[in-house]
Design a protein around this nucleic acid. Structure first.
Lengths: 162, 162
DNA sequence: CCGTATCCATTCCGATACTG
DNA sequence: CAGTATCGGAATGGATACGG
């Protein structure tokens, strides 16, 4: 059987995963955010097989998350660069990283630290907030179907599924 | 060859993906955040094969992202509930959802809307912010290796790509 | 240096049938 | 209803060899 495609699902999460749902995709994007641009950078940094890297890069280019641009140093090869679309995945990357820092940290600490570039300080956690910037409790966050269902308590105390 | 395991990588993103990197995992968690608790809820909502669902749920329980608890209604079966560890994946879920809303929206609009439970209003985007709550530009965010490399410009030095 | 092209192993997933 | 068992197909990823 063919693996189900998420692209025709209405859910935005599924539709996003259609683009970055493969294991390597987000790690490639992370490396690109850290400044990697060349095939070799990704390959060495990630320890990924070349053909796999080729496939993932092609997918990301096709999904317009990255673009191929002429090499800045005049090399005859091209480089890979994040588009705005790709750069806006930063909240996803940061959230994944911070969750890992807290819940499944490596004994030697994290390899990558996300910072305020000016101060060099570690960023506070990416977290749901109000327009005012005030941090919310998760119990104050609701999800509802686009139809008309009432917001659902996602602290998990209730049960209200159709 | 065996697929490379991310669990011994130092990178927090890779370590997180070790837990939620499968295609279905995050969608199961999303459903749980919307209140799904029973096997059948997940199955019907996602259209996932039963054996696949069993595998994913077992993985999530093993990773302590969910727990099995006695059914609230006295059913002889158990229910699945997010742990705090699992609930704290909310920023990841929200970030994925909001990226999809903006960049790969379905023509009929999103199926799920994330709200302030009190006001019912849609939440602003999850985004890197300062301690003060002030929203940052992505160009102000840096990433550095735990060693001491200087922060890297992750807007990309060249012109912005569209 | 940047890929392609094979080939193969493993993982993931779906359909179906079956159990309690 | 909540799984388990089995099967096959598809996707992913690694190793190697090769070519521009």
């Amino acid at each position: 059987m063919k693996t189900k495609s998420f692209s025709n699902m209405q859910c935005s999460i599924a539709r996003t995963l259609e683009h970055v749902g493969s294991w390597w995709s987000l790690l490639i994007i992370r490396d690109a955010m850290m400044g990697a641009r060349r095939f070799k950078h990704f390959q060495k940094s990630l320890g990924i097989a070349k053909n796999t890297l080729t496939s993932r890069l092609n997918e990301l280019v096709e999904g317009r998350i990255m673009v191929r641009v002429p090499a800045a140093d005049g090399s005859k090869y091209e480089e890979y660069q994040l588009t705005e679309r790709g750069r806006e995945l930063a909240p996803v990357i940061i959230a994944l990283s911070q969750w890992g820092d807290k819940w499944v940290a490596h004994e030697d600490g994290p390899s990558t630290i996300i910072t305020d570039k000016d101060s060099g300080e570690r960023l506070p956690r990416v977290w749901p907030r109000r327009e005012s910037g005030e941090r919310m409790a998760l119990s104050e966050v609701g999800m509802r179907r686009n139809t008309k269902a009432p917001p659902i308590d996602w602290t998990g105390k209730e049960e209200k599924i159709k």
